[in-house]
Simulated assay, not measured.
Amino acid sequence: MTIWAIGDIQGCFDSLQRLLDKCRFDPAQDQLWMVGDLVNRGPQSLETLRFIRSLGASAITVLGNHDLYLLMVAANAVPRRGKDDTLDPIFAAPDVADLLDWLKTQPLAHAQVLDGQRYVMVHAGLLPEWTADDALALSAEVSRHLRGPQFAPFLNALWGDSPLGWHKQLNELDRARVIVNAMTRMRFCSKQGVMDLKIKGKPENAPVGHVPWFEVPGRKTAKDTLVVGHWSALGLKMTPNLVALDSGCLWGGHLTAVSLPEREVIQVSCTTCR
Rank of each mutant, 00 (worst) to 15 (best):
P43S: 08
L49F: 05
R50S: 09
S54N: 03
S54D: 11
L55Q: 12
G56V: 06
A57L: 09
S58Y: 01
T61W: 08
T61M: 04
T61S: 07
V62W: 10
L63F: 07
D67F: 04
A74K: 00
P79R: 13
R80V: 11
R81Q: 14
R81F: 12
R81M: 12
R81H: 13
K83F: 11
D84W: 13
L87T: 10
D88N: 05
I90V: 15
A92L: 14
P94H: 11
A97Y: 11
L99R: 08
W102L: 10
W102D: 06
L103E: 12
K104M: 14
T105R: 14
P107F: 12
H110T: 07
Q112F: 01
V113F: 11
V113C: 06
L114P: 00
L114Y: 14
D115R: 07
D115T: 05
G116P: 00
G116W: 06
R118L: 09
Y119T: 02
M121D: 12
M121K: 05
M121A: 11
V122M: 07
H123R: 03
H123Q: 08
L126I: 10
L127F: 08
E129L: 10
D133K: 01
L136T: 00
L138A: 12
L138D: 09
S139C: 01
E141K: 14
E141A: 14
V142F: 10
V142M: 05
S143P: 00
R144A: 14
R144K: 13
R144P: 01
Q150P: 00
F151P: 00
F154M: 07
L155P: 01
L158Y: 02
D161Q: 07
D161Y: 12
L164E: 13
L164N: 05
